[in-house]
Amino acid sequence: MLEKISVDDAVRSLRPDFAALLMTAEGLANAPSDSESTDWLRIAGDGAARAEDHPHVAAWQEAYRGFGAKPKRTRPSVDALLRRAEALPAINRVVDAYNAISVEYVLPVGGEDLDGYLGPARLVRAVGDEVFDTVAGGESVVEHPEPGEVVWRDDEGVTCRRWNWRQCTRTRITESTKNALFIFERLEPYSLETLREAAGELAVRLRTITPEVRIETRLIGPGAE
């Protein structure tokens, strides 16, 4: 699975400094949020950086402008989370774990249900006719990305719009998720060492949730072996 995930050359040309650390976690036993996972959120929120002060948030805002998005209207995921740090929502144990890591490490972290995928994940610039299933006004709707927008997609359609802004409903992690993909996304000046540290800490928490979980990782981009 991991070896088939790719970043298109059109995205690499836009941001040559982009690196993604990919992690699969198989055999998860997810569950509703509990005191431990809400503590992860609380501790992350208590120590959260100010979004407007952090160079990694600024780098992501610049990347959004690079493909025509307005980062104050549709914020990069880590920017949006940091601005909600005082009241991070509890979703379920696995989502709480990776949202807390995202805030603690000032790093976009996406979580996807692997069993919802059709074909491998790849980061591309959209044509504009791709399918993106989401919810608006409490109703299920289908949207389409803007031409040139950076999106994660599979064979079925877009799994996350505007790089890391909003994921589709089809691949979101729920309490019944057994196999997950996590995507840690980095731009300079964020260090690869800190990127790997964040992934390692999420692995620790996933093993707290499910001791027998099977974890594999792969780095894509600058610094990959």
Rank of each mutant, 00 (worst) to 15 (best):
R84L: 15
A85E: 09
A87C: 07
A87D: 15
A87F: 02
P89H: 04
P89S: 08
P89K: 12
A90N: 02
A90Q: 08
I91A: 13
I91N: 07
N92Q: 11
R93W: 00
R93I: 06
R93H: 05
V94W: 00
V94Q: 01
V95A: 14
D96S: 09
D96Q: 08
D96H: 08
D96P: 07
Y98S: 05
Y98W: 15
Y98M: 08
N99H: 12
N99S: 12
A100Y: 02
A100H: 03
I101V: 15
I101N: 05
I101P: 00
S102E: 10
S102N: 04
S102G: 15
S102V: 01
V103N: 03
V103F: 03
L107N: 05
P108S: 14
P108D: 07
V109E: 00
V109P: 00
V109W: 03
V109A: 05
G110M: 14
G110Y: 03
G111A: 06
G111V: 02
E112N: 13
E112I: 15
E112A: 13
L114N: 02
L114A: 14
L114D: 05
L114V: 07
L114M: 15
D115V: 04
G116D: 07
G116K: 04
G116A: 09
G116V: 09
Y117W: 12
Y117P: 04
L118C: 11
L118R: 15
L118K: 14
G119T: 11
G119W: 07
P120T: 08
P120R: 11
A121K: 00
A121D: 10
A121R: 11
R122E: 14
L123F: 08
V124T: 13
R125N: 01
A126F: 05
A126Y: 02
A126D: 01
V127N: 09
V127D: 13
G128V: 10
G128Q: 11
G128K: 12
G128Y: 08
D129V: 11
D129R: 08
D129I: 09
E130T: 11
E130Q: 10
V131E: 10
V131Q: 06
V131M: 05
F132K: 07
F132M: 09
D133A: 10
D133T: 13
T134S: 14
T134L: 03
T134W: 06
V135G: 07
V135F: 09
V135I: 15
A136W: 01
E139S: 09
E139C: 01
S140V: 14
V141G: 05
V141R: 10
V142E: 12
V142K: 10
H144S: 15
H144A: 12
H144F: 03
P145V: 08
P145Y: 03
P145M: 06
P145T: 04
P145W: 02
E146A: 14
E146H: 11
E146L: 15
G148P: 00
G148T: 08
G148Q: 10
G148S: 08
E149W: 03
V150R: 02
V150E: 03
V151S: 08
W152F: 13
W152T: 11
D154P: 06
D155W: 04
D155R: 11
E156G: 03
E156T: 09
G157A: 05
G157I: 10
V158F: 00
V158Y: 01
V158P: 02
